[in-house]
């Protein structure tokens, strides 16, 4: 009896506030725009029969007809993909060095990685505005060193978006990789070297495969949220930066076209379902391995 209550409370909460809302998004994506409150039709007020017959795929058809949307999807995938790779290239050496650091340093290094994670996301993105702008610190520095003689335009381009994503999601990449590397038994590397591997070979043949779960988890933790990112492209990107999160936000708040915004969300969700399922598999496998 108690167990039933214990299960039911969080379960029902998530059903009502997580799953049901998605069903509503799906329903609205099949509705038509209307000058009403809420600004779509049909609603439940029209009766159940009318509700069902009033639904169609018009909005999805519209998405395929307008260049803007599919370009935004492709560009989001591209930006998320490349920034994930860059984050991995920056994060892996850091995680590796942390795992190799003397044991008494590790908690401090760990804290240094976690600290930005606790700091406001918005503020950390905002910090780059002052650095990347034409008269910003980066340009001032580069001009002062004489590397360039005219300021670079970085802010309001995709470059700034890449920098922003790598910067804000770096801790998400480092932490799972570090966790995997720290558990790694050093005698495995020694065994590999003892059996004739060079340092480099031992790294590729032992360290990398054994930190695979961490790498996979880190990549998903960066890729999935980056795909739907809104704050970074809006703040650092320019008018040419097309990202689906931004498109959705504007469709909803600026154009007040709720059905199209919902259709955009449904497609985004469909794109994300595969990586999300893969991510969960990875997590589950890891949990089972630990038990």
């Amino acid at each position: 009896m108690r167990r039933a209550v214990l299960i039911a409370v969080p379960y029902l909460w998530l059903l009502a506030l997580f799953l049901v809302p998605f069903a509503i998004v799906f329903k609205v994506s099949l509705s038509d725009t209307a000058l009403a409150i809420p600004p779509y039709t049909p609603t439940l007020k029209d009766g159940f029969g009318a509700l069902i017959s009033g639904l169609d795929f018009e909005n999805f058809v519209f998405l395929t007809q307008d260049d803007l949307y599919w370009k935004a999807y492709v560009s989001s995938l591209q930006i998320a993909f490349f920034s994930t790779i860059v984050t991995l290239l920056v994060g892996y050496p850091m995680a590796y060095a942390m795992a190799r650091a003397p044991e008494e340093w590790r908690p401090t290094l760990m804290m240094l990685v976690i600290l930005p994670f606790w700091t406001s996301f918005l503020i950390r993105v905002y910090a780059w505005v002052g650095i990347l702008s034409t008269e910003g610190f980066l340009n001032q520095f580069l001009l002062w060193t004489g590397i360039i003689d005219t300021p670079l335009t970085i802010l309001n381009t995709n470059w700034a978006v890449y920098i922003g994503i790598v910067y804000t999601y770096l801790p998400f990449m480092i932490l799972p990789i570090y966790a995997a590397l720290e558990r790694l038994d050093e005698s495995l590397i020694e065994a590999a070297e003892d059996l004739g591997c060079s340092r480099m070979q031992a790294f590729w043949l032992v360290t990398i495969p054994l930190s695979r779960n961490g790498i996979v988890a880190g990549c998903f933790l960066v890729f999935i949220p980056a795909l739907g990112e809104f704050v970074i492209p809006s703040l650092l990107g320019g008018s040419g930066t097309l990202m689906i999160g931004k498109v959705l936000f504007e469709e909803f708040f600026a154009n007040r076209d709720w059905p199209v915004a919902s259709a955009v969300a449904v497609i985004l969700l469909l794109i994300l379902i595969i990586p999300i399922i893969l991510f969960q598999r990875n997590e589950q496998r890891q949990q089972e391995a630990e038990q």
Partner: peptide, 12 residues
């Protein structure tokens, strides 16, 4: 993505 969570809750 936060945009999806936000949108779905608003519609609810």
């Amino acid at each position: 993505p936060e945009v999806i969570t936000g949108l779905s809750l608003l519609l609810l």
